[in-house]
């Protein structure tokens, strides 16, 4: 028996039941004793109800509410994603209306009642998981927009040594002084604007030395997902992202630094 405990942390499912299944299989094959989902089950992808059998009533899986889940769960009119650009909002609304219309009531109720943060102590470190940030569910924590001192402030204010978040869709991690760290786990439902069709989740190893986090790349049948998205008549720019790994929408909320790495 190894002294290393393993955990998986992911976010941003976006109706992508195929990448969700692949992520869970990968984490379980690596011996993760618990898997944490940081929210946003809906949006973007096809056939919303197909993610729930993989997420609900699973003993090793702990699911948190994101802003999208709060909106769908409470049958609100939009996703409260925080976009400012009308084009982003146009596509986001198509996808939100589709998700709201195609999510069963029982699943909506489940989303409505999910917890909004997780806390653990791993190797003596206080671990906090939140959706956007610990202080605001739809706050974007982009790598290029988070000064070290700001992250230190968040950790101090929310009494944590290790913080996991999602919401932006692009993974990054930062080590701070004293072994403290902040990890944005990215999203498994949509590629990270890097030209890869694969997605990433955070694999956590905990032993006497502390908490180590690495990103784990997951391939899945993205062509099957794209075909299904077309069948469902979802916006073609979304399909393009799945097939190319480049974002075509939500670009205006992305900082210039992250955007410069993409093609749009």
């Amino acid at each position: 028996m190894s002294d290393v405990r393993r955990f998986a942390v992911f976010g941003g499912v976006y109706n992508n039941f195929l990448s969700l299944e692949a992520t869970l299989n990968d984490a379980r094959a690596l011996g993760c004793e618990a898997i944490y989902c940081l929210g946003d089950m809906g949006g973007f992808g096809p056939q919303p109800d197909r993610v729930f059998p993989l997420l609900r009533d699973v003993p090793d899986l702990f699911v948190m509410q994101g802003n999208y889940d709060h909106s769908i769960g409470n049958r609100l009119e939009d996703c409260a994603c925080g976009y400012t650009d009308p084009r982003d909002n146009y596509y986001a609304q198509i996808s939100y209306d589709y998700t709201l219309a195609n999510t069963a009531d029982a699943h909506k109720d489940w989303l409505r009642d999910l917890p909004t943060e997780f806390r653990h102590t791993w190797a003596g470190q206080r671990v906090l998981m939140a959706h956007g940030s610990p202080r605001q569910v739809n706050e974007f924590l982009w790598e290029s927009m988070c000064p070290d001192a700001f992250l230190e402030h968040l950790l101090k204010s929310y009494e944590a040594d290790v913080l996991f978040v999602t919401h932006t869709g692009i993974p990054w991690k930062r080590e701070l002084e004293g072994g403290r760290q902040v990890i944005n786990v990215g999203a498994i439902g949509r590629p990270a604007n890097n030209g890869r069709t694969s997605v990433d989740y955070a694999l956590v190893e905990v032993d006497a030395q502390g908490v180590r986090v690495d990103f784990r790349e997951v391939e899945y049948d993205h062509e099957a997902l794209a075909a299904l998205m077309r069948e469902e008549e979802l916006p073609e720019p979304f399909v393009e992202t799945i097939l190319t790994g480049w974002w075509t929408t939500c670009l205006e909320v992305m900082p210039a630094r992250e955007r410069a790495a993409g093609v749009y």
């Binding site: 927009m145 000064p147 402030h153």
Partner: peptide, 8 residues
């Protein structure tokens, strides 16, 4: 401001 944890 940086010492106060400013963001931008």
């Amino acid at each position: 401001a940086a010492a106060m944890g400013v963001k931008e």
